[in-house]
Each structure stands twice: as structure tokens, then as C-alpha cells.
Design a binder for these strands. Structure first.
Lengths: 268, 268
DNA sequence: CAGTGGTCTAGACCACTGG
DNA sequence: CAGTGGTCTAGACCACTGC
């Protein structure tokens, strides 16, 4: 138990009778339930890498003991973390840090589906890396990644093909510091989702993302790479992916062919 | 309390000691926790219209008494209904049947956002109804709506404009029986979301939807209605909306201009 | 079998709403 | 003030996993 943990728990109730529900500092009038504080503490540990993706976090009883709260309170905290896909519960086994590897759906963020057939009846996508280099961030990229214009970023371009048909042309932009040393070989060779490779090789876990979608026409170069005519309408999908803390960690600009695939979205 | 309610509760635990967690019939080996059974019962009441959209459902204590379970079990059932957006909890007031009227976000299912500015800084969309008539369902429409080809359906076509700019061209297909009597006037005059009108005038509440998105070029007629050239790429958004029971109740084919708007999607 | 998460209960108290 | 949902606890038991 690191000393930072002790500091962090000081604001919590230290027995079952007198509760300290409000945050310790008098400057924060905001009420925060205990389970939320517990959730934040666990979140901080996840962020700090106390448990790696795929590993089990301590059992509910252990966490309850550590934070001096009841199991039910820890349970509610973990319930929310599970709802946020940060953690996965497995009855009889434990609670595990979510990972983009070994996920029941192989591509958690890819919403492109073949028009006929199931999820990945096409098998895995073939990746062709066209480019991977270190460059200075253009203004728009810098803004999206919360960097200063001119900061170093890794930029990669690749084509994903399904059943031999080039279907997705993507440009990836990654902040230079955490992704220092990224190579085309890495992008090409890694088996499994690219985000899984980011976890393993760079310790960066993507937690959520936002996509902005438009219909566009490709320029001649893009058309050639996707083997379509410049008059073929394509889906432009601009994605910003975030780690913990809502820190943007990737800007991805994709062009999707939708002649035999479609972008699927479930609205609740 | 209708007599059907008594029948429905017979399978539940009738005191705190001996639980009857599994479904009553021996033919169902599936284990179902009590709170799930409660959830299903409440769901059935919602479906049956025991409480109308916007109305309060009974308090947790009342429901606990009615079903002979603890408040905590009812709470967990309602929590899931709230997570599914079927019900809205308001502390100090009660739990209310969700409705497309008076919703904090006015267009729950419309993901098109202006490139600049906030949600509805543009004000409400102007609706132009081009068509509204009773027709026989083509094969593809019938399939989407779980009808037989040739069954009667209502078909409507409209243009939505933002700040005077025609932006969305939509074709709506609705099953003829529940939507008998739908008129263009109704579609044009109703203040608020169309789905709110469906609740009020037809008792049909849309609960979830699925959208399939592609990039397409408009045919000449479509281009003219949206005031774009036939070479302008557009988003094709095909939506199927469902009521309770996952019964499809609407097929909507939309063409979205994305020159000053974009389709936004949050990935978790 | 012990250990994990999952369900259920009963009771206490808190925060918010409205009369 | 009474009534609502929201939090927290303590303890019991169930279902699942793996040794």
C-alpha cells in the first residue's frame, strides 16, 4: 500500500458511524457520495497503472477493507466502472482491468459492418502501412490532441482491406511523447486490434472516443488507394480517442467505402 | 389493480424467507434473479399503458409492497429501467415514464449537429411535408417492419431545414394499423419531436433504434429537394425504430447534407 | 472446498421536493 | 412537514470458478 493511498483515503469515513460524505476541503460545496469517492480512488489506481490491463483488481472485500467502507459501497463503485467499460466483472473469478486484447468483440470502436453476414465473418482485416513518421503537428491536429502547433506527433497512414478489397483509408495522429518510437513494422505486424498494441507497447489505454461523420468525395490520391473513382461518395470518419482523464491521445481520419459495408449505430 | 397483476405476481417470493427465484414453470431452466422478474413485470405494465408517458409510476415502497419484495430489489429493477431510458428518476418527486416530449435533449435520436455552435442554437427545424399517404408495403419495407409485403403502411416524405437551409430529406414508413389516420397536417403542425406526437396521438412510444449509414449521391429529384447538385455526397441514414418488445414501428430513410453539419457518435 | 462476484433483505439516515 | 428517491451498512445466502 503506497503512502499516496493513505493520503487519498483520509477524506473517507473511518468507521461505520460518523460519515464524512462531503469532500474534505471546505472550498468544495459539492456533495459527493462515498461510492463516488471510492470510484475515483480506484480510477486513480487504474490510471496510475497499479493493475495492468487484463489483471485482476483486488476483491470487493479487500477493497472494502482498504477503504474502510462496506462491500456494498465498493460494489456500487465497481458497478459504475464496469458500466464505463473500464473494468470487467467475472463471477467466481474476480474483477479485471478492461483491455482491447482478448475482448469478446474484436473491434470495439469500429462500427463498419459488412452488408451481409455476421460480425467478423470476413476474418481479420489486412493492414497495409503506407507511412509512419515523426512530424510537427499542424494546427488542427494540435488542437484535437491538446498540443501546441509544431509539437512532435507520430503520423501514420494505412489501408485496411476486407477479403482483399481496400475498404478503409486511415490517417493516425498520435502525440509524440507517449508514442515515441512507433514504427510501421509495429503497426503492420501486431496481431489484434491496434489499441491493444498501444496498451502493450506504450502503456496507453483508449477508454472512449468521439466520431464526427460526413459524406465526402475522395481526392485522386485517396481514390486510387481505395481503388474507386473520384466520383465515389465515401464516409469521412474523424475520431478522437481518449485515455483516462479525458485526455485526447489519438486523432484518426478515416475514409470508409460503403459499397459493401455500412456504418452501424445503435441508438438508446 | 387489475386481476392480471395478481396472476403475474404468483411466481414471486411471497415472504422474506423462502424465495422462489426460478421461474414458476419447470420448463424454464433459466435462472432469473428476482429483480429481473420485477423489472419484467414493471415493463409489462409500461407496455400495457398502466401509466402513461410523463406520469409517475408508483413509489419504490408501493411497488415493493405490491410485489412482496424489499425496496432494494425494486430499486435495482428500476435502476435498469432507468439505464434503458424507459423511465426517469427524479429525487424527491418520483419515477416517471420516459417521454419524447419535455426531454432535456429535444431530439434524442437525431445525431446531426451543426459544425459550429451548440446543440440547438439553430432553433427548431422547419418541417415541410411533401407527402403523406397510405400505400402497400414494398418487400424491403415490409421486411424491416415485420409485415407481409402488400400490407398497408403509411408513407410520408418531408424536408427538414435549419436556418432556412434544407438539410434532411426523409421518407418515413409506418405500419398501417397503429398509425391509421396519420395526416400531413399532423406531421407539420405538431410542436416538438415527431416521436412525441406518435406517443400522444397514436400511443406508440419509440424506445430504441438502429441506424445504418452510408455515403451516397442523390438522384436528380433528391438533389433538387435538398438544393444541391447531384454530385454532392450525402449521408444515407436508414433507421429502424422499435417500441417495447423490440417490435419495429418505423422505417426511416434519410439523406443528410453534411456541408455545415456532421453526424456525431460517442463510442464507449 | 474456499474465494469470488451476485442477489436479497432490513433498517438507518441523507438530500431533495412540494405543500 | 411528509413523501420521494439516494446512500450506506451488516449480514445472509446463492451461483460460479478453480483447486
Amino acid at each position: 500500500m503506497p503512502p499516496s493511498d493513505t493520503t487519498a483515503t483520509e477524506n473517507l469515513a473511518d468507521n461505520g458511524t460518523d460519515k464524512a460524505l462531503s469532500a474534505g476541503a471546505a472550498s468544495t460545496p459539492a456533495f459527493s457520495p462515498l461510492y463516488q469517492q471510492i470510484k475515483d480512488l480506484i480510477l486513480r489506481s487504474l490510471q496510475a497503472g497499479e493493475w495492468k490491463p487484463g489483471e485482476a483488481i483486488p476483491s470487493e472485500m479487500e477493497l472494502a477493507a482498504r477503504f474502510r467502507v462496506s462491500q456494498g459501497t465498493v460494489r456500487k463503485a465497481i458497478d459504475e466502472l464496469a458500466a464505463d467499460n473500464l473494468v470487467v466483472r467475472r463471477q467466481g473469478k474476480g474483477t479485471f482491468v478492461a483491455t482491447h486484447s482478448e475482448q469478446h468483440v474484436q473491434y470495439r470502436f469500429l462500427r463498419l459492418m459488412p452488408d451481409t453476414g455476421d460480425l467478423d465473418s470476413e476474418g481479420p482485416a489486412q493492414r497495409t502501412i503506407l507511412e509512419c513518421r515523426r512530424v510537427r503537428a499542424p494546427a488542427d491536429v494540435a488542437r484535437a490532441l491538446a498540443l501546441r502547433p509544431g509539437d512532435a506527433v507520430m503520423q501514420a497512414r494505412r489501408v485496411l482491406s476486407f477479403s482483399g478489397v481496400p475498404t478503409i483509408l486511415e490517417d493516425l495522429w498520435l502525440p509524440g511523447l507517449p508514442f515515441k518510437g512507433l514504427t510501421a513494422t509495429q503497426l503492420a505486424q501486431y496481431q489484434g486490434p491496434t489499441y491493444a498494441m498501444f496498451e502493450v507497447d506504450f502503456g496507453v489505454r483508449m477508454v472512449r472516443a468521439v466520431e464526427n461523420i460526413r459524406a465526402v468525395l475522395p481526392d485522386p490520391a485517396q481514390a486510387q488507394l481505395l481503388q474507386v473513382t473520384p466520383a465515389t461518395p465515401l464516409l469521412s470518419v474523424e475520431r478522437v480517442a481518449f485515455t483516462y482523464n479525458d485526455a485526447p491521445m489519438e486523432l484518426r481520419r478515416g475514409l470508409y467505402r460503403t459499397d459493401s459495408h455500412h456504418y452501424r449505430n445503435d441508438l438508446n
